[in-house]
Design a protein around this nucleic acid. Structure first.
Length: 155
DNA sequence: GCCAACGTTGGC
DNA sequence: GCCAACGTTGGC
């Protein structure tokens, strides 16, 4: 089982929205970057665990965790010309974009801010700091444990 | 809202 | 296949 970090802009879709989807989970859509697509399609496995990261907001950081409830399948929005995720180069024979489903697992007692991550030496190798624009990222076992420890520190 | 970093597109 | 132009991301 592997660990991941998925980014979202909370004004578009937040961890609270994922929590509202309940035990049936919700699709994680709109991934339109090849490196992220390849990870989703080829490596993300059922029941892998995911750090949910809120970006582009006043409180950036890791806010909770989720689990993969369905592995990669073709994202139908790429064929919908009214969708912001429409891609005119995608065909039925050669889909370009995929998505997975996530199920909410927990909200952290305390958000682990980007500033905290930057200030924690054990997290200096996180992909988040090295490839800040990648929206689907692998997380190591030790990074996972460290983030969870920070999220629960002082609680 | 600004701007740096970086990914994508398309002409040649 | 190169690379300039352009678009997007995301922190501040």
């Amino acid at each position: 089982m592997a660990y991941w970090l998925f980014k979202t802009e909370p004004h578009e879709y937040s961890i609270d929205d994922l929590a509202l989807a309940g035990s049936s989970g919700a699709p994680w859509d709109g991934i339109r970057n090849y490196q992220a697509r390849n990870l989703l399609r080829d490596q993300v496995a059922l029941r892998d665990r995911v750090l949910i990261y809120h970006s582009s907001c006043s409180a950036v950081g890791v806010v909770g965790i989720a689990r993969i409830s369905r592995t990669a399948y073709v994202d139908p929005d790429q064929y919908d010309s009214t969708s912001p995720y429409y891609d005119h180069k995608a065909t039925a024979d050669a889909p370009r974009w995929y998505r997975v489903d996530l199920v909410f697992e927990a909200l952290f007692p305390k958000r682990v801010s980007l500033a905290t991550i930057k200030n924690t030496p054990q997290l200096s190798d996180m992909v988040l700091l090295r490839q800040p624009r990648l929206s689907i990222q692998p997380v190591t076992d030790s990074q996972w444990r460290q983030i969870n420890a920070l999220a629960n520190a002082g609680c």
